[in-house]
Write a protein that binds this DNA or RNA. Structure first.
Lengths: 161, 161
DNA sequence: ACAAACTTCGCAAACACTTTGCGCAGCGGT
DNA sequence: ACCGCTGCGCAAAGTGTTTGCGAAGTTTGT
């Protein structure tokens, strides 16, 4: 992690746009799409990785094919707002593979927002009772079930660069 | 999209686990990690793609390096629950590059949950006023700001397979 | 229990892509 | 106009991917 500075020009932005959408693009395909030959294109991608702008590649799987039909948004309130409570909660949540996202958030109603992926209601019931409500400090839990996935990605808006 | 059936054995599961974490793994590295030679490993990955279990690869970028310091969870209520309202809302939201996630959810307080990534409060203010509240039918909007990102991934739990 | 049919492996050859060194062109500052 | 810097493309060398094929192990049917 040398973390050098990189000034992102039009071509870099295009590279980031394309790679965000398709991380499986070969360097050659990418080069062609941005109008460069393979070597400068690869050097740019490497530089973006060096700079820490490109973090990693991941593979996205289809949840339904894996029997994970249910996605739940959970809002959780804590009884006391002490660092110990938060640390305990966070390390316990980090152990749970069903939790895809967990954020500490502002707001009077909730302290944490979780996104959980799980096979069905039965499994969710077990998950909630045995995993979430067992964590010390958890006082209020509100579950919202996802009916429709309008947008679900990790793409960042590059328009502000 | 032939979408053939695939029975996921122990090795397939391992492949999916590894690829979820690091989509940039070469087939050779992957093969070594799962204890296979390159050719059967590649054939399995291809089969998982064919079956639609592996959806795509994406590249994850570092938001802070791109000047996107703020993440907001927005809960939105609609005035009338008609299909037209929902369709209009969803197609308008799909146009907004700042919106990373958008789900139609159950619950009395809100109809939609959005996750928005944006540079700062000023930009968010503009975004909310010019983009979100302008969409017909949006009646209640509640913003929660992300203070800490405990978990943020797209990994699915493979323990249920 | 045995054989046919099927599955899945590893090896090796053919092929393709990635990666590096190098020379050249364009640009900004003096 | 010249020097230095940056970034490009070409080409060669190095790696990785991909395919065909025979062997080994497993299941199915008789």
């Amino acid at each position: 992690m040398s973390e050098k500075l990189v000034k992102i020009d039009r071509i870099d932005r295009r590279i980031l746009e394309l790679l965000q959408k398709d991380g499986g693009l070969s360097n050659q395909e990418l080069a062609e799409k941005v109008g460069l030959s393979a070597s400068p294109c690869l050097r740019r991608v490497k530089a973006l990785e060096e700079a820490g702008i490109i973090l990693k590649r991941v593979t996205v799987l289809e949840r339904k094919k894996l029997g994970l039909a249910l996605t739940v948004i959970i809002l959780i309130g804590m009884d006391r707002h002490t660092p110990e409570r938060f640390e305990e909660f966070e390390s316990r949540v980090a152990e749970l593979s069903e939790v895809q996202e967990c954020y500490l958030i502002t707001g009077q109603d909730a302290d944490y927002m979780l996104k959980v992926v799980i096979p069905d209601m039965d499994a969710y019931h077990v998950f909630l009772l045995n995993k979430i409500t067992r964590i010390p400090g958890v006082s209020g839990v509100h579950s919202s079930f996802v009916l429709r996935r309008v947008i679900d990605s990790m793409e960042l808006p590059l328009a502000y660069c």
